[in-house]
Amino acid sequence: MITDADWAELLYTRATDPDAVRRAYANRVRRERLLDRRGTLFLVAADHPARGALGIGDRPTAMANRRELLGRLLVALADPDVDGVLATPDVIEELLLVNGLHNKVVIGSMNRGGLAGAEWEIDDRFTAFDVESIVDGGLDGGKMLLRLVDSDAGTVPTLESCARAVSALARRGLMAMVEPLPYRRDPAGQLVPDPDPVALARAVTVASGLGATSAHTWLKLPAPADPSVLDATTLPVLVLGGPPSGKVADDMAAWAGALAHPVVRGLVVGRTLLYPSHGDVAAAVEAAGRVLWTTASGPPS
């Protein structure tokens, strides 16, 4: 957690010493490899607030309390099974300023312009990290959200922007983490995930073909109800947590089914672990690490 003294120091640094962010990036001790010794990767995600997605259960602004969010992130990152974080520049910089990211994998979230609930939500502009800032900051890769809606032309610029980012990250030897999600509009016109396994398989194949090379592309996918969806790619896959169901055990059981597939290399989970229904972040993270340990595919024998 963050003590009162640490919080006061962070706020004072933010107001009086903006160059501290540059120094913190430069002084971060980087991890040598993306994967751990088992050949897996476990990241906590905290890029939801930048897209205006703040709600957890019946708390519509749960993730708006920054001190609470940072405290929960630090608890998660203290678990030895957690390899790193996926977040936007503001969150990464705050974690750097409190020395929370040494020897951790750090992935920068790139497109957050499709604000939750906005009329233009599918036109998901790149408003956070760009490739240059990821390189300059010594990060390990960049993540992009790609929601596919056949009836919405806003999908097209996002597709093109993601393809360019995949190519640019690959030229620098950095991970391009693409999160392809099929969406549709319900009768009320609201965007909702498309649960059809065929739609998810199609999204996987579209994302796999983005950019000039797929050599550094990873996919971030929901645990599919039909595991055969994962047969659609040879690219490494990380299973996302998705909206918390309210039952942590059920969420982890779904992840375990996907983790057994040989293309799956780990987890990227945010709200489900940072704001578990039982309230114990450390216990939720430890349980997820245990699921990963026991079910994920490791190096070839």
Rank of each mutant, 00 (worst) to 15 (best):
D152Y: 07
A153I: 04
A153W: 15
G154R: 03
G154N: 13
G154L: 04
G154H: 13
G154E: 08
G154D: 13
T155K: 06
T155D: 15
V156W: 15
P157L: 10
T158K: 09
T158P: 14
L159M: 10
L159I: 11
E160N: 02
S161K: 14
C162I: 12
C162N: 10
A163W: 08
R164T: 10
R164I: 08
R164S: 14
R164D: 12
A165M: 12
V166E: 01
V166C: 05
A168H: 05
A168M: 05
L169R: 03
L169Y: 02
R171F: 06
R171Q: 09
R172D: 14
R172A: 13
G173W: 10
G173F: 09
G173D: 13
L174G: 11
M175Q: 08
M175H: 15
A176P: 01
A176E: 01
E179C: 02
E179Y: 03
P180V: 13
P180G: 06
L181V: 14
L181H: 08
P182C: 09
P182H: 03
Y183P: 00
Y183D: 04
Y183M: 09
R185Y: 06
P187F: 15
P187A: 11
P187R: 10
A188Y: 14
A188K: 05
G189K: 01
G189M: 01
V192Q: 15
D194Q: 12
D194N: 09
P195E: 07
D196L: 15
P197T: 11
V198G: 13
A199W: 10
A199Y: 06
L200S: 11
T205A: 13
T205I: 11
V206R: 03
G209A: 08
L210M: 02
G211E: 00
A212R: 07
T213D: 11
T213A: 04
T213F: 04
H216S: 06
H216N: 02
T217Y: 00
W218P: 00
K220P: 11
L221T: 07
P222T: 04
A223H: 12
A223V: 06
A225R: 03
P227L: 15
P227W: 07
S228A: 04
S228G: 07
V229C: 14
D231F: 15
D231Y: 13
D231E: 11
A232R: 02
T233Y: 00
T233Q: 01
T233W: 00
T234S: 04
T234M: 14
L238H: 10
V239Q: 06
V239S: 09
V239W: 07
L240D: 02
L240P: 07
